[in-house]
Design a protein around this nucleic acid. Structure first.
Lengths: 407, 407
DNA sequence: CTCATTTTGTGCAGAGGCTGTACAAATACA
DNA sequence: TGTATTTGTACAGCCTCTGCACAAAATGAG
């Protein structure tokens, strides 16, 4: 298919929304906040004057600083050759920050991030699973205000990751996993934490699905860099989530609920899934499934993740039953991915959480199942790689809050 | 998920690629080639002066004409109220055309189209299934040259629809269905038909997958208009294809091979598919499957499409076995769509070919199966509608060739 | 029939952003 | 020390969009 089937860009003012200043800022962000002017000129594919012009704007707005006498070792990759050395452009130390929130059933992470994706500070609290939504929201509000205050820099947004499909229009969390919550108007409830009196009054709050946000983070700063069509699949605890980054954008679907990959068929006629079908990916390849395959009873729901890792460690050190279980799960993952590959035609697959560990342990079983199940993979050979970031979901939440600045 | 996760626009020159002239032309195209200035001003959301400026450019380039004294009845929808009546903008009668080609195993359609999607002329030839690729290519070349010559207008491109996954980079047809062909370098072979001597020397040739192109056509001119995320599924003859239009663009995946929906599981443990799996959508819901479900042997491969329609006609007039078969197929389609909906979160599903007929006949069976199989559909209710165009694939091929003009 | 009202198209001044060119600055290498 | 090479900046100019003022073309009330 010949590319570039364009449509009118949704431009509110008619003014150029993709001007060079924005593109430059985005390029800098993707390079983790530091790049030479020469690199930026090359990447933007425009004249040096245009970069000068765009940069002066960004410097004026206090977003970036230009170091005219960079040490050679400041940029590891930059080959120092002949000619005048290029100035180093970095994110300004007084540039605005965003606060990222990652809520799970048992933990609450809140961090401050600046442009470029650097984490300035992180705070983790243990939380007990509680059906009290209001209390959790207040807790989030308190922690966000604290982190924002400590940052001592202007705060332009809050990004929140939730273990739930999230509606695009209003940040409604449709079905929070394992939280014992009904659907909640998450964005409004969280925004309400920042009343008129506080320093964060009226701050924009963005909410997204955890796996989607992790996908976004891996694309921008991790193992998915520069992919044209990156498929991300991950599992933490129970259930399997995914995300697709296509043409540089997170694919959210019409409502925001897209890429619920957990119920892709990985093993026809296999385990009964809570969705009612059999052999769903998340019934065959999350930590519970791994424990079951290893013959280790999984009565307590706590510590599932840890115990799953033990199985993989045992497999690595030669335990045949554990090894077998890992192989089985890897094969199921491969089969599930095959279905997704046939539909989505990714040029890279990134696996996170437990799946990344399984991939590292037995890449062959996974690859074999993928190869067998996907005629497309046989034609184009899709690389499957483990995720790189240590806190992808939190980084993704930050990404969400930074997006308006890059648009 | 909050929208607008932007990335730098791939802009070759740094110049604004989404200028108003382009956006205006696209808007006019989407309105089938005729609109008032006032409508265009509203749609572009910019000042009247900007439209003036953009229009003068398009008029100068000979693409559109402005009728300053339109008859009131010329635009059916335009409510004639107070105030000065708006000028009518239409595609210029001397504007360039494109030639669209639709190759199937038994027919070859070639048509000339102008901006706005109007078909100026169509020629159909019956072809015999032949493994002789070269001969078919020459046949296409001859017919295209003839139609182009007769059009008496500048021809700016050739769009070709093939029954095969098509590689985005070079128009390579990976696996032509039922053609008894190996993979062929379709774009190059067709382009070679327009040598230096001919009037079409060096004309750009664009190749795409038939179902993808039909999806594109229904989106731009048919049942998918204005959808944000349109899923299209169709079948003609044997096999099932699909396409996704997301954010106004055809989703092609990384290689161009995306949306091979035929092997989505519609009936776990069902019929053995030629891909090796069981219960694939195309093993359960193409014309062959319908005939089988109706208990009518399907020995000859010819006329499958016609005989499938007879089954549906019989079902409509009360034949219980035929009715039963239609219901079964509809349910399978619903189940297959459920898988796709969970992944892709469309806000509209358009069914073409045999599936459109099945939908019209027994919408309830299909809806029930979709509802049961997709938790997402239960949350958002996705409308399923039949396709509207009579030659969607050909229109889609034209769309492909017109795209460069709209970019 | 006349005039106010409404809606639309155009001309013009101006701003903003980009391009290309010429020139100056800063390095490596001979 | 001088040349080649690469990079940043200043400046003139162009293209596109905006906003305003004004003219044009219809409706409808009196």
């Amino acid at each position: 298919m010949t590319p570039e089937l364009s449509t009118p860009v949704a431009s509110t003012t008619g003014n150029d929304p993709a001007n060079n200043a924005t593109r430059l800022l985005t390029a800098l962000h993707r390079r983790d906040g530091a790049a030479t002017r020469a690199e930026l000129t090359a990447q933007l594919d425009c004249g040096r004057s245009a970069v000068s012009y765009a940069l002066s704007d960004l410097v004026e707005r206090g977003l970036v600083v230009v170091d005219e006498h960079p040490q050679a070792f400041a940029v590891p990759g930059a080959a120092s050759g002949r000619g005048r050395p290029s100035h180093l452009v970095t994110v300004a130390p007084t540039s605005p920050v965003v606060i990222a929130v990652h809520l799970r059933v048992d933990t609450l992470d809140v961090g401050a991030f600046e442009l470029g994706g650097r984490m300035l500070r992180i705070e983790r609290e243990a939380v007990e699973p509680s059906p009290d939504v209001e209390m959790t929201m207040r807790r989030i509000g308190r922690l966000v205000r604290m982190i924002a205050e400590e940052a001592q820099r202007p705060c332009i947004g809050v990004g929140v990751s939730l273990p739930s499909p999230v509606r695009a229009t209003d940040g409604y969390a449709l079905a929070p996993r394992h939280m014992n919550w009904p659907g909640v108007a998450a964005r409004d409830l969280i925004a309400a934490q920042f009343g008129d009196a506080t320093a964060l009054a009226g701050i924009p709050v963005h909410v997204g699905n955890d796996a989607n946000l992790a996908a976004l983070a891996e694309y921008v700063h991790g193992a998915g860099r520069d992919a044209r069509n990156m498929l991300f699949v991950t599992t933490e605890h129970v259930g399997i989530g995914g995300g697709l980054i296509s043409g540089g954008r997170l694919f959210t679907g019409a409502s925001g609920y897209a890429m619920e990959v957990g119920h892709t068929t990985a093993n026809p006629g296999g385990e009964l899934c809570r969705c009612g079908a059999r052999g769903c990916l998340e019934a065959e390849a999350d930590s519970r499934a791994l424990l079951r395959a290893a013959g280790r009873p999984d009565a307590p729901a706590t510590g599932l993740e840890y115990r799953a890792r033990v199985v993989l460690a045992d497999a690595a050190s030669g335990d045949p039953a554990a090894r077998n279980a890992a192989d089985t799960v890897a094969a199921r993952v491969g089969s599930g991915l095959a279905v997704l590959v046939n539909l989505l035609d990714p040029d890279r697959i990134v696996l996170g959480g437990l799946l990344a560990r399984v991939l590292k342990l037995t890449p062959e079983s996974l690859a074999a199942a993928l190869h067998e199940g996907s005629f497309l993979e046989r034609a184009v050979a899709v690389p499957v790689v483990p995720a790189q970031l240590s806190a992808p979901t939190l980084v993704g939440a930050a990404e969400l809050a930074l997006a308006p600045l890059l648009a």
